[in-house]
Every structure is written in C-alpha cells, then in structure tokens.
Design a protein around this nucleic acid. Structure first.
Lengths: 212, 212, 212, 212
DNA sequence: TATGAATGAGGGTTCATTCAT
DNA sequence: AATGAATGAACCCTCATTCAT
C-alpha cells in the first residue's frame, strides 16, 4: 500500500528505495532500522519516504510484497513447472536458482527471513500468503507424485509435506550459506559442490518418501 | 555474566527474573522488549534489573545461557543415550520429550528461536555452543548408525546431518504447535496423535538415510 | 497582501480559495490548518497557494481582510442606518440579518471568532479595524439615543457600549446556534422564535440603558 | 488524569509544572506549546513530563482541571454565596475578586480563554462541565430573584440568563484588562475605577432585568 | 502560471540507563 | 540491596516551504 506518489516514481528510484529499505531491515531488524538511513541510502530526503509510504510499517510491509513479487516474476520467467516431477523440481533449473541466489543475496535472505518468521508478527499476514501459495504447489507435486507412483501412498500428504519442507528448507539454507561465500562468479568447482548437495538431497527425498 | 548481586539472589527470585525476561524477549523480540515490563513481571523494581545485569544485552545473553543450562541439565538427567540407535532416539523418551514441551513451552520455543538465528547476530555466539553440543551428539548417532549398518554409508556425514536436522526440526515444530493447544494434561488421544507423528517421521528418516 | 498572481485570478477561483482557507482555519484553528487541505478543497495545487500568498500567515491575514470587506459591502448595501434608533436597529433589518447568518454561517462565525480574539494576537491588528468600525457606529447610535432622550444620560458612553455589546453579542451567538440547526429555509415558526428572542433582547436593552 | 508519579510529587514541584504548562499554553496556544519549554520552565527534564502525564493532551486537560480546582478552592474559602441576591453577588467580595485577578492573572486569563472556547474542541468537555456548574448557580440566583421579586417574572429564565451572562462577561473582561495593567498593588484610584465599573454594571443589570 | 514532488527543521514520544533515597 | 523517579539521546513523523518541470 504505497501512496500514489510512490507508484508514479520512475522505476530506478523505486528500486533504489526498496533495496535501501530491505537492506536496512535485513541489516538491523525492523525496530532498529532507521528511516533516515534508508532515505540516505536511497538518495532521497527523509521526508520523501513519507510521501511514498504511510509510515515505517507500511514501508516494511511493502518491502515484503515487493520481494515476493520480484520472485514471482523470476519464477514466471522460468520454465512452467506445472507437471513437474517432485524430484525433478530441484534438479532442473538448479543453475538458474544458484544464479539468482548469487545475484540477489539480499532479496533471497530477506525472503527466507520473513518466511521463517524472523520479523515476528509483522510480516505474518503477507508471508502466510506466500507460504500457502508455496504449500499449495508442493502439495500438488506430492499428489502428482502419488498418481505417478513415484511417492509412497501409505502416508498422509500433510506428513509428507512436513518431511519435504524440512529437508528442502535445510538444504536451501545450506546452499544460501555457500552462495554468500563466493563474491563474483562461482567457480565450476563450487557449482559442482552445490549440485552435489542438491543431488544428495534429492536422493534422500526419493529414498524417504519414494515408493521403493 | 550477571553481576554478583544476581548470583547471590535466592533461586526463586532468580528464576522469576529469568522467566520474565525470556517471556518478554520471546513475546516482543529483543528491541521491543522493555526492561520495565520484565521487572514488573518478575515482581522487582526496574532499577534492580540493573543491580543484577550490566545492561539489556547482558540480560538477554544470560537468558540464552540460562536456557542452555536448563536443557543441559535435562539432557544429563536422561538415561545415558550413548549407544542409542538414531531411530530409537525419538521413539524411546518420546513421552518425556512431550512432557518437556508441555511443561516448558516458553523455554523450548525460546531455544528453538535463538538456535535458528531468530535473534539475529545477538545470540549467535552463545547459542553456537548449544548447537554444537547437539550436533556433536547427532553426528555421533550417525557414526554409530553407519557402524551398525543401519545408516547408508555412501553419503557424507555432514549431508546426513543436514537431512536429519531438517526432518526432525520440522516435526518438532509441529509437535510444539500441537502441544500449545492442550491446556493441562494432554488426552490419551492427543498423545497417540503425537506418537503417530513421531513414528511417521522415524519411518521417513529410516527410509531416507537408512540402508535398505 | 496577496501577490499579484492572486489578484489577477478570476473571481470564482479567488472565492474558492478564500472560502477553503476560512473553512479550514475555522475548523481546525490556525496552527492545525493544513495548506494542503486548503488547496485540495479549493481545487488547486498546494504550490499554487504559494503563488498567491507569501506564506500561511499571509493567507490567514487576507482571510480576515476578505471577510471584513465582505461585511463592509453588506453593510453598505443596507438602507442608510444613519439616524436609526438604537432599539430599532435590531427590530428593523432582523430578517435580513437572519438571512445573512443562514447564508453565510461560515463567514459570520469566522468574523465573530477573530473579533473576539480567538485567533490570539494573529488577527488582532487587522480585525481591530472591523471592531472599530462597528464600535464607531454603535457609539453613534448611543449618542443619538441620548439626544433623542431614549437612552439614559447619567452614564458614560463607554460603559453603555460595554453593556450594549455584551447583550447583543450573546444574543447573536444564540441566534447563530439556532441558525445552524435549520438546513434550508427556516420555517415560519423558527423565524418567529428568533424574532421573539430579538424582541426580548431589545426589551432588556431598553429597560437597562433606557431612560425610564 | 496525571499518572501516579505526578500525584506523588511534592506540592512545590507539582505547582511548578502546572504553572509552567499553563503559562506555555496561554502564551503560544496548544499546538505551538513545546513540551521542552514547559519542562525547562518547570525545572525538570523533558522526559519527566512523560512520567507525569500520558501525553501533551493529557497535560493540557489537566491544566484545565487544575485551574478549575484552584478556583473552586478559592471560592470555597470565600463567603458562602448560597442565598445571595443576584445584584449583591458582584458588589460583595469585589475587592477579593480584584485581588485574585491581580495575584493570578495567568490562571484567570487561562480560565477565561478555555471557558470561552479559545482552545477549540480540546477543553470543550471539561469546560462544558465548568460552564454548567456556573450556569446552574446563575439560574438559581435568577430563580431566587424572581421569588424575592427583585427580578421581572415576565420573561423566561433562559433569556434572562443570556442577558445576565452577556453583561457580566463583558464587564469581567474589561476588569481583567484593567487589572493586567497595574503591576503591583493597584492604586486606590484604580480600585475606585473598577468599583465604579462594577456598580454601573449592577445598575444596568438591575434596570434591565429588575422589576421596576 | 500550475503542479506536485522534494526537503528538512522541529517537536512529540520512548525507554535504557543513572541516581538519590 | 532495592526502589522508582529523573534524565536525555534517539527516532518517527508532520508539514510549511521550495523547486523542477
């Protein structure tokens, strides 16, 4: 819910503001984030922030929304995942995914943090939505897998989801950590290591929830 | 690092202060936590908090330490798990674990949060300790499992640990949520549901990382 | 002292701006009045206000002047009151006076407020003018009355003025209040009630300051 | 509604704070009044004001209440006015009243201002109460007068009240203005002038609403 | 000339920390 | 040692005024 003034801004300034905000929130947490610093980093005056957003909370909430939309666009651009096999899901676009992590570590870590509830009740409402979209998709993958007989059908979908999320979140975090460590282009070796990580994960997933 | 004054306090008051602090930090997050409210809830004067601790940060850090020590004691009290099978780990003692979650939901969720980095860099240093103790133990279970040939040996211990943690943490969270819903004693039915949850988890773990 | 730009505006826009300003000052008081709201209500851009007036104070001062001029014109238009008896003053033109209150409650109440000093020192200087014009006239009526022997001559004109103003202002306020309550045309009944009010007032005035 | 902290303060500090507040509100109006200046003038820290009052509005509201209570005490100390004749009301105790005006010009002018609605809607609630208390008393004086046959009985009490208030308020204002002009002790001459003013007023009142 | 975005000084408010009792 | 009042730095937010288009 930014104000009209913000909507009308040119893309460049909008992006500068949003990235400055996200950077500040991520660096200091919501309470400690200073509007003045955000404005400074975005290259605008403190007062301008209040021309764009109702208040600090509004700015934060839109930071979450903006990030979600950013990823939505990213994902849209990627191959349609409609009928993908749950195990293929990670093995396919993995290079693209690594790329994204490398190019947008700020957005990625911000997204992870608010999704995991690190911003307390603040982002809850918005991120719950995101979470559910994700869960819907994952549940569909699971249902698909049962139909294709690649996933065991002796267990409740909810339980399988728990298992699936537990494993994938943990590995994603691990990949994130690795990604943060290489500055520019990852070396071929690093990419291989990450690929190995993902393959192991898929193997474990397949073993665990697969129909053997 | 509380001051000498705090050390000398009688156990009851010490506990009241620590629980008030943890409750406040957990409810509002570090920045939003108010010393005044903590003092109030502990039934002491605001100034007294500063007789006990250097400052807010000191109080927070000790809240983490205190929680860690609490769990260390718990763990010590349990049957020596030395040679336990990794799958048995959850099935045995599950009732005890439920008990703890039910009796100390505050401490459990506080521990989960700071372990998972929800308090930003603040608790990192101290909580690393708890994390490592846990990890050491889990790695030992994994090594044991490999020896006993109950865990696949074609995969790196670190990767297996990741898998193990991902799954168990997610299920623990789920159990926590359930535990929050029953007020006093859980009904036999609720206990059964939780037990079913754990059994499914163990099954998935076994399938995934087991040697089939 | 509006700028040349304002002077050149067409009457309609000028009036919209002035009424918006007066409405805002009256509704919120000088300090709380927001230039933005005034501009909005006048249907012009905030910046335009600064093309018309030096600053907020300038706008306020001119609001006072504008109102005064409005009433001057009104008064000019009425039958020459030169030789009117002080008691007749209210009984004659009373319908016209009610009309004005009904048609311009905003201007009337604004005039009353700044005349009575509700805007602090701000309007003092300018409104003193209106006050003096009024007082001059009332003093003339009093002098006339003494000559005609309808007003007691054992009391100082200044004191009689005080008495006269006290009574008439209070009753005017009362009439204003009543006027606010009827939406469109006042019913004949309401007009009668107001007339009765005025007649009672005149009676009291006559008794008090008259020569019996 | 000051906080407990304020209630517990010693009388001297309480009075310093209240007078500083009233002085500031009276000098600059509500919006322009600065908490910092109030604190400074009271000789306390800005933050302390917030230990005493919820916020600026709370402080203002209590300033009104405090002033009212101050006058209540003053009046209580004076002769019981129970059965006083409406005309005697002003003639008796006039010297005491002048004294009060001279000694507490700040409180008096503050009281007049908020009673007359100069603080807009802010003090409305509280001052309405005060106004009604006053009106009740004045209506009683009028009823008494009718019984004693010192007030005409051919007119509605409400109308007589309007007349009475109009006259007395105006003259009170006039006396206030005069009082502001003498610094220390009023000269005997000045007292005489004020007395003359009051006597003229009573005469006019008596003529106007009296039974002749 | 009209517009509305940009600016930043100013002031209310919070709260960790200090201090007097 | 315990208390709770006192302090003031820090920060959000408002809005009159300026400025670029």
């Amino acid at each position: 819910m930014p104000k009209r003034t913000f909507i009308r801004l040119d893309e460049d300034k909008k992006e500068r503001v949003m990235r400055a905000a996200i950077g500040e929130f991520q660096a200091r947490g919501y309470e400690d984030a200073k509007i003045e610093d955000i404005a400074q980093n975005a290259g605008v005056a403190k007062g301008s922030i209040y021309q764009y957003f109702e208040d600090k909370k509004d700015l934060f909430l839109y930071s979450v929304t903006w990030t979600i939309e950013y990823f939505m666009k990213m994902i849209d651009r990627q191959t349609p995942l409609k009928d993908m096999d749950i195990y293929e899901y990670f093995l396919s676009g993995s290079r693209e995914r690594f790329e994204m992590i490398r190019k947008e570590p700020l957005l990625v870590s911000f997204a992870i943090d608010f999704t995991q509830g690190k911003y307390g009740g603040l982002a809850e409402e918005i991120s719950r939505e995101l979470k559910q979209v994700g869960e819907q998709y994952e549940l569909k993958l699971i249902a698909n897998g049962k139909k294709r007989r690649t996933i065991r059908d002796d267990m409740d979908d909810k339980l399988l989801l728990l298992f699936f999320q537990g494993v994938t979140e943990k590995f994603t975090m691990r990949v994130m950590e690795m990604a943060k460590n290489f500055k520019y282009e990852p070396t071929e070796e690093q990419l291989l290591e990450m690929k190995g990580l993902i393959e192991s994960m898929v193997l474990l997933l397949k073993q665990g929830m697969g129909r053997n």
